[in-house]
Write a protein that binds this DNA or RNA. Structure first.
Lengths: 226, 226
DNA sequence: ACCTGAACACCGTTCAAGT
DNA sequence: ACCTGAACACCGTTCAAGT
């Protein structure tokens, strides 16, 4: 009831905030296809061209939406081991991306480096540096975790997971056993890891494992002999 | 000169193969936006509706393109350690995706489980099972590597890497140092790992590291006491 | 200052018609 | 059997005009 979104209002004053709010509503409701400048204008009760008085084009509108979305992520980090904290941080991102798939699509156009997005990088880097990784190793490790999470949201999170599993299983069982011995014998396992939060966590732990096992984890000796 | 593509021909006989060939040419030349049913028809020297005699709609045309593209991947595996072979396999995929970015975008709509695509899964699973992973662990590990590779191609491979790096560096250096201590002090390192083949390999090795370190790597005792 | 309608150059696809 | 033109319901955006 205290929701900041007020899509119910028939014709409140037009502001950038209200435009973004309604645009996000369209995206949340119907995905990327649901957002057109014309539909947005209609939802605002305004002529198609009016929105252009607030955002020069659709691209800059989308940039503003992404900025809003990255700023909304709540990055409270609870005390604990750094592995757990890093894990929780990426789970936070994953859950937001899965709940708002349009963010995944929109962020694909280019790397987002706005202040709001950088809060996340800051949190991740701090954890890895406190864990004893060098600046370079921390940056590389964080990037890998980050890309994996976006990749999972983009490529392993279909709208209907059960249907995707069913479809995949049927396809695997159609393959000739002699040409595809591993796939056909592992059809169940493959289907199980195709999608879903559990498999996301499993891959995440695999990567965290790799980070812990990395050589350059502790900083070099206090004073290099130079 | 022995190229199978014959876009130069003004009006060869219309076949599904020629349509797919020309469509792939449009995609390779101008990306996803370059492919419209109307432009495709124009490139074929034919009326817009003619293509619909061969593919019922744009979606099924895209499915056929993806199938062609996955079948074209040459999966020769050279002798060596399984880690190296697996690494090479994913590098092969990465290089194809970076060279043909439209594949990345098109495959996002849903998991692709056609026979052509499954050849890749078969190769990866075989390597991991020969390495001694259980069927379940092999499936999970392969999926993680696969998703990471697609994620990297989709989110860390902008058309102009140098421009992306420059833009990111400038953005990092604009941030307030007291709010973003880790990001601002690591700006150079962050920019270095933002994109590029080297960082792809670094993350890939991190994950391979995690797979090797995993507990359930050797199969259970010959005969479980049952 | 803020909003608008008409128009332009595009889409994917249906439908009835041509050869 | 194979191809087509006209039409429909959409896009993003320019431009000249309205208040």
């Amino acid at each position: 009831m205290a929701s900041p979104s007020r899509r119910a209002d028939p014709r409140a004053k037009l502001t950038p905030e209200r435009i973004l709010d309604v645009a996000q509503g369209l995206l949340r409701g119907e995905g990327t296809d649901g957002l057109s400048m014309r539909r947005l204008a209609a939802a605002l009760g305004v002529a198609p061209m009016t929105v252009y008085g607030y955002f020069p084009d659709k691209d800059s509108l989308i940039d503003a939406i992404i900025d809003t979305e990255t700023t909304e992520l709540d990055l409270r980090i609870v005390p604990g081991a750094w592995q757990e904290q890093l894990r929780d941080l990426l789970i936070l991102l994953y859950d937001q991306l899965v709940a708002n798939p349009f963010v995944v699509q929109l962020r694909q156009r280019r790397p987002v480096v706005s202040p709001g997005a950088m809060r996340f990088t800051e949190a991740g880097l701090q954890l890895l540096q406190h864990a004893g990784l060098t600046v370079e190793a921390a940056a590389a490790a964080f990037r890998t975790l980050f890309i994996y999470t976006f990749g999972y949201a983009a490529f392993a999170s279909p709208p209907d997971e059960a249907a995707a599993r069913r479809h995949a299983l049927a396809a695997c069982l159609t393959l000739p056993v002699d040409e595809y011995p591993a796939v056909t014998s592992a059809a169940q396992a493959l289907t199980a890891v195709l999608t879903g939060r559990d498999q996301f966590l499993r891959g995440l732990d695999l990567i965290l494992h790799g980070i812990k096992a990395e050589p350059q984890k502790s900083p070099p000796r206090k004073r290099p002999p130079s």
